[in-house]
Amino acid sequence: MRKILLITSSPRGTESLSTRFATEIAHGLRSQGGGSLTVRDLVANPPPHITEDYILGRTASPDSRTTQQNVAVERARELVDELCAADIIVLGSGMMNFGPSSQLKAWIDNVIWPGVTFSYATGAPQAYLLARSFI
């Protein structure tokens, strides 16, 4: 069964063309091939912006993390797990001041995780989204 992840990031919600188009695409994919649809509305449920707790927590061993670091890492882990579980990702994003919304940028910052979603093993970044354990 296919798992579809729909990510929307417009502050205009359903009034946004990017949200409407992305939603139509995700529902169309689901109706054509079945499967499940997970919706992540980054405006209704914004991911946290990166903090020192996240930066230090994701490189620290679990038993040496502070409570704040554990919370920051767990929030990011939820987003990464959701992303890694998806077979298809539909991203609806408008432009805010010539760039992505801050909510989308925060989501990207949380899911771009060295050793978890990408590696520099060959000297250049290589993405990989596979089920894996987190440290």
Score class of each variant (00 low, 15 high):
Leu5His: 04
Leu5Asp: 00
Leu6Glu: 00
Leu6Lys: 01
Leu6Thr: 01
Leu6Ser: 01
Ile7Cys: 05
Ile7Asn: 02
Thr8Arg: 05
Thr8Ile: 09
Ser9Pro: 07
Ser9Ala: 11
Ser9Leu: 05
Ser10Arg: 03
Ser10Gln: 05
Pro11Gly: 05
Pro11Cys: 08
Pro11Met: 10
Arg12Val: 07
Gly13Tyr: 04
Gly13Asp: 14
Glu15Lys: 10
Ser16Arg: 04
Ser16Ala: 09
Ser16Asn: 05
Ser16Glu: 02
Leu17Trp: 13
Ser18Gln: 06
Ser18Thr: 07
Ser18His: 08
Thr19Asn: 01
Thr19Asp: 00
Thr19His: 04
Arg20Phe: 15
Arg20Ser: 11
Arg20Pro: 09
Phe21Arg: 11
Ala22Gly: 02
Ala22Pro: 02
Ala22Lys: 00
Ala22Asn: 01
Thr23Phe: 08
Glu24Trp: 14
Glu24Ile: 15
Ile25Tyr: 03
Ala26Ser: 04
His27Asp: 12
Gly28Met: 11
Gly28Cys: 10
Gly28Asp: 10
Gly28Ser: 13
Leu29His: 10
Leu29Ser: 06
Leu29Trp: 08
Leu29Val: 04
Arg30Glu: 10
Arg30Cys: 06
Ser31Gln: 13
Gln32Met: 14
Gln32Phe: 12
Gln32Pro: 12
Gly33Tyr: 10
Gly33Leu: 12
Gly33Trp: 12
Gly34Met: 09
Gly34Ser: 08
Gly34Pro: 08
Gly34Lys: 06
Gly34Asn: 10
Gly34Phe: 07
Gly35Leu: 03
Gly35Pro: 00
Ser36Gln: 12
Ser36Glu: 11
Ser36Leu: 09
Ser36Met: 09
Leu37Pro: 01
